[in-house]
C-alpha cells in the first residue's frame, strides 16, 4: 500500500500530537491539580503532584453556597433548551417536510437574528427586565437563553430532519398510515437522534453563556458563569478554592462535550461543514 506509514514516522507523529494536545490541555489539567492541593501548596510554586486533599471542594461548597448557582445552571440550561425544542421541533419539521418557496429565506432570516450582537440590545433588555421585575429571576433568564439559541436549534433540527428520506413517508401513506401514524411510528423514531444531538449542544451553549447571565442576575438566579465571574477580584477566592470552584463548574459540561464533538461541528457551522 502506497499510503502505509512506517512505524518510525508513526512514533514521530504520535509524540508530536501528544505534546501539542497536552500543551493545549495543560491549563485545565493544572487547574484540576491545583484544586487537589491545600492553599499553602497552591502558592508554593510549580508542582504537578498535589496532596490530593479535598478541603478546597468542601470549602467551596460550605462557604460559597456552591449548590445554588449549580442548580441554577442546570435549570437554566435544561429549561431554555427544552423550551426552544418545543417551539423549534414543529417549525423545523414543517420546513423540512413541507417546504415552500420561502422556506430558504425564512431559514436565512432566522440565522441572521443570531448575528445581532448581544450588546446592541443590552439597553432595552436591561430596562425591560428592571421594570417588569424579571431581573434576577430564573424565568426571565430562561426565556432569554431560549431566544438566543432558538435559531441554532431550528437550524440543527432542520438539517437533521431533512436527511430523513421522504419516500418512507410515501410508503407509509400507501400502506394507509394516517398522519398520526406517520408522526408517531415513522418519523419520530428517525428524528430522535437529531433531537438528542441538538439538545446536547444547546445545553452546552446555554451552560457556558456568560453575557446575559452576568447582566441579568445578581444572586437569586445567578448560574455558575455569573457566580465564577464574581470572583474576578483576587480577594474573592484563594488559589486552590478558585480551582475547585472552576473544576466543579466545567466538569459536567466537559464530559458532555466529549460526547458531542460531531454535533458541535454540525450545529455551530449551521450544517455548512459536516
Amino acid at each position: 500500500m502506497a499510503r502505509a506509514v512506517s512505524s518510525r514516522a508513526k512514533v514521530g507523529y504520535t509524540v508530536a500530537a501528544w505534546i501539542v494536545a497536552l500543551l493545549i490541555f495543560f491549563p485545565i489539567l493544572y487547574t484540576i491539580i491545583t484544586s487537589l492541593k491545600s492553599e499553602q501548596e497552591a502558592i508554593a510554586g510549580f508542582d504537578l503532584i498535589p496532596s490530593f486533599t479535598l478541603e478546597s471542594f468542601r470549602a467551596v461548597q460550605t462557604q460559597n453556597d456552591y449548590w445554588k448557582p449549580f442548580t441554577n445552571s442546570v435549570i437554566l440550561s435544561l429549561g431554555s433548551t427544552l423550551l426552544a425544542l418545543i417551539v423549534a421541533i414543529p417549525a423545523a419539521w414543517a420546513m423540512a417536510f413541507s417546504p415552500t418557496k420561502r422556506t430558504k429565506d425564512i431559514l436565512m432570516w432566522m440565522l441572521s437574528t443570531k448575528m445581532m450582537p448581544a450588546v446592541a440590545v443590552l439597553v432595552p433588555i436591561y430596562l425591560i427586565f428592571l421594570r417588569t421585575g424579571l431581573m434576577d429571576t430564573r424565568i426571565g433568564l430562561t426565556v432569554m437563553l431560549m431566544l438566543i439559541n432558538l435559531p441554532i436549534v431550528v437550524w440543527m433540527l432542520y438539517t437533521y430532519f431533512r436527511e430523513i428520506p421522504g419516500e418512507i413517508l410515501e410508503a407509509a401513506r400507501m400502506d394507509g398510515a394516517t398522519l398520526r401514524d406517520e408522526i408517531v411510528h415513522v418519523l419520530t423514531p428517525m428524528a430522535v437522534p437529531g433531537i438528542a444531538s441538538t439538545l446536547l449542544l444547546n445545553v452546552i451553549l446555554a451552560w457556558n453563556e456568560a453575557f446575559w447571565t452576568i447582566q441579568l442576575t445578581t444572586t437569586n438566579a445567578a448560574p455558575l458563569s455569573a457566580f465564577i465571574a464574581s470572583f474576578s477580584s483576587p480577594q474573592g477566592l484563594f488559589w486552590a478554592k478558585l480551582s475547585a470552584a472552576s473544576v466543579l463548574a466545567i466538569a459536567p459540561i466537559l464530559i458532555l462535550g466529549w460526547f458531542s464533538q460531531k454535533q458541535l461541528v454540525r450545529g455551530l457551522t449551521f450544517g455548512a461543514v459536516k
Binding site: 494536545a21 490541555f25 485545565i28 493544572y30 451552560w207 457556558n208 458563569s225 465564577i228 488559589w239 472552576s246
Partner: peptide, 22 residues
Amino acid sequence: ILIISPFFVMPPVAALIWKNMI
C-alpha cells in the same frame, strides 16, 4: 478529546484560569 476540551470551558473560568494559574 484533550485538544477539544478548552472549547467547553465557560469564558469566566477560562479567563480566571489564565489570569491566576498561568
